[in-house]
Amino acid sequence: MFDLNGKNALVTGASGGIGAEIARTLHAAGATVVLSGTRIDPLQALADELGDRAYVLPCNLSDAEAVSALPKQAADVIGSVDILVNNAGITRDNLFMRMSDDEWSSVLDVNLTSTMRLCKGVIRGMMKSRWGRIVNISSVVGTTGNPGQANYAASKAGMVGMSKSIAYEVASRGITVNCVAPGFITTAMTDKLTDDQKTAILGQVPAGRMGNADEIAAAVLYLASPEAAYVTGTTLHVNGGMAMI
């Protein structure tokens, strides 16, 4: 089950905690992976750790031209992109009343517009090969909302609507488009929270703990696998029961 031998995957945000784990998991299932992100050192360290079938392609997702070029660069390196995981994302939190246009647009650009561009860039090849998997990493807050995150929540909810629309268009060509929506996951970002903040967060999570990056990666692996061919346009929530939707 979930054998990705012979498949080529492009993972954005692979220098982060969740992205790196997604790349590791797809690689372990047999896929060749292109690791993209802004920080070259952790990408290279991950590529060295994975060994064969792992390549690094740095890309700044706020640079529209660089984003549009990425799918082609990836295809040049690995031959095709069969699996695209849009995992990269940024936050610039602020109360909505204080949120600047720049805070709004930078988050929408990186999280949503770059996802759109990358989907566009890979879909032609997927149409030709009659097989493709796109997994967009959304967030529980795209569904529930979160104070201070109007921009981030909008970008993550936008991802869901966009994924469903693309899923409609390309379903007949063997291409699926789905989202994974993580809840609170232990990463470098959440390590910075104080104990009080963590306690408050865990009060909302029936499972009583934060999730782990490998639990997100497992959901991505499933949606990327041949076994998930009949699953499209859906959002798989991985949040310990925090929001049952």
């Binding site: 032609r124 149409m127 030709k128 268009e169 390309v170 060509r173």
Partner: peptide, 9 residues
């Protein structure tokens, strides 16, 4: 409409 896109490709 998708067929027409593929034809052009």
């Amino acid at each position: 409409s998708l067929d027409t896109v593929e034809l052009v490709m």
